[in-house]
Amino acid sequence: MNITAEIWTKIGSISDIPQRGARRVKYGAVVIAIFRTFDDRIFALEDVCTNCDGPISQGIVGDASVACPICNWEISLETGEAMGADVGQVATYPVRLEGGILQISLSPAAKAA
């Protein structure tokens, strides 16, 4: 059993991330990519492409997806899953916005396969 209360950690403000862009958060050896879409939705995914381990934080951000800069796979920001005909899962983390301040929960919501 793994019961933990969700602990929210402050990582910065929404204005730190460009729209249709991403910033990285380093958590020990883990790198988490924080994405901001054109309509100001925020997503947190592990910064590792499910196909090639590439840093997806460096990709071009679409409506609610990001294209891996190394292999061009399209990853859903909402689920962390590979889109189209590809199959794979990137770990996702819960994020929330409290008065312009971004907070992250560091236990993954979806784990990478």
Binding site: I7, T9, I11, G12, D16, I17, P18, R23, R24, V25, K26, Y27, G28, V31, I34, S105, L106
Partner: peptide
């Protein structure tokens, strides 16, 4: 500037 630095660096113990 934002391109070149992480947004935050969290200690492993923080959470």
């Amino acid at each position: 500037k934002h391109e070149f630095n992480p947004m935050a660096v969290l200690e492993r113990e923080a959470a």
